[in-house]
Amino acid sequence: MASPFLLPAVLALAFAQALAYDPTPLQDFCVADLKSNIFINGYPCKNPKTVTVEDFSFSGLNIPGNTKNKFGFNVTIANVMTLPGLNTLGVSIARIDYAPHGVVPPHTHPRGTEFLTVIEGTLIAGFVTSNPNNTLYQQILHPGDVTVFPIGMIHFQLNIGKGPAVAIVGLNSQNPGFIFIGDAVFGSKPPIPVQVLEKSFQVGPNVIQELLAQFK
């Protein structure tokens, strides 16, 4: 006869695994050794004897980013690559600067949920749910307003104010990843076959070629 404690134990383990997006710490810290040749899920730990206080700090979120690009936005991020002390801690933070009418194009973070707080300006922000509904949840955000983009959902922000805008975002991953939809679909290397794109978007080859040219 199965133990009465077996099912609760299995459910508890499954629940814990479902929540564990990033590696769980097994010691006080595991500062990332970014120069290691060892390939694992994450980064190996530096020898604690070589760890310094600088491994746990990052500067620059107070500095406006350069938004002079075709989309009009800039991300300054403190993740495991720029703040090695975040390794195994499951968090990162970023500053987003928006030029007037600047947009962060539709994108996803495959490994993290995003928590966005507007510091300056006015944004339209939204995300789209998965199939079959593809529901858009969109809102206008002012300074002090907060919104969340669930993990893996396609989302975007647009500065609708007359001046620049600033937001601070937190993510529940040390390396949440960024997949910009346009870059991934029309800028992949090697490119996705044109016939696939024509059939997928139900447009002719001229439209596809025009879009592909934008992402070269």
Rank of each mutant, 00 (worst) to 15 (best):
A125M: 14
T76R: 07
A94C: 07
P105A: 01
V80I: 10
H109N: 12
F180R: 05
P23S: 00
T24Y: 01
N175G: 05
G90R: 03
P23H: 10
P84S: 01
G163F: 04
D97S: 05
V103R: 11
T52Q: 08
P4D: 12
A78W: 09
T24P: 01
K35W: 03
T67N: 07
L61E: 03
T82R: 14
F215H: 09
S57R: 14
N69W: 00
L26C: 01
A12L: 14
T113H: 10
I179V: 15
L141A: 12
L141C: 04
A165F: 09
I192C: 00
V196Q: 02
I124R: 15
I63R: 15
N206V: 01
C45W: 08
I179L: 14
P100H: 03
I154C: 10
G177I: 10
V207E: 00
A184G: 04
P84V: 09
D33A: 03
I168R: 03
H109V: 06
K46W: 07
S59E: 05
P164K: 13
N134I: 12
P23E: 03
V185C: 08
E120Y: 15
M1S: 11
P132A: 02
G144R: 08
F156N: 09
V80P: 01
A99P: 05
G182H: 06
A2V: 13
S130D: 15
G72Y: 04
Q202P: 02
V196M: 07
Y21L: 13
L6Y: 08
L26T: 13
T24Q: 13
T113F: 01
V196Y: 00
I140F: 07
K189H: 13
D33G: 02
K70F: 02
H107C: 00
L6G: 03
N206R: 10
A184P: 02
R111N: 12
S200Y: 02
T117W: 01
S188E: 05
L89A: 13
T122L: 03
T88H: 12
I119G: 11
P193K: 11
V166T: 12
G85A: 12
I140W: 10
I124Q: 15
T88R: 02
A12P: 05
A213P: 05
L141G: 03
Q157F: 00
I40P: 07
C45V: 07
D145E: 07
I119E: 10
V51P: 06
E114T: 06
I168L: 13
L6I: 06
A99Q: 11
N134Y: 14
F5I: 03
P193S: 11
N87I: 04
G163S: 15
P8K: 03
N41M: 08
G60Y: 02
G60W: 09
C30Y: 00
V75G: 01
V91Y: 11
I140E: 13
V75K: 09
V166Y: 00
T52A: 00
H155G: 06
S59Y: 01
V103F: 08
L141H: 08
L86A: 04
P164E: 14
Q195A: 15
K49P: 07
V203Q: 04
G112F: 06
K199R: 15
L11F: 08
V53I: 15
S92E: 08
V203I: 12
P100M: 04
L34I: 04
L13C: 09
G182D: 06
H109P: 04
L83V: 01
G112W: 06
L6P: 08
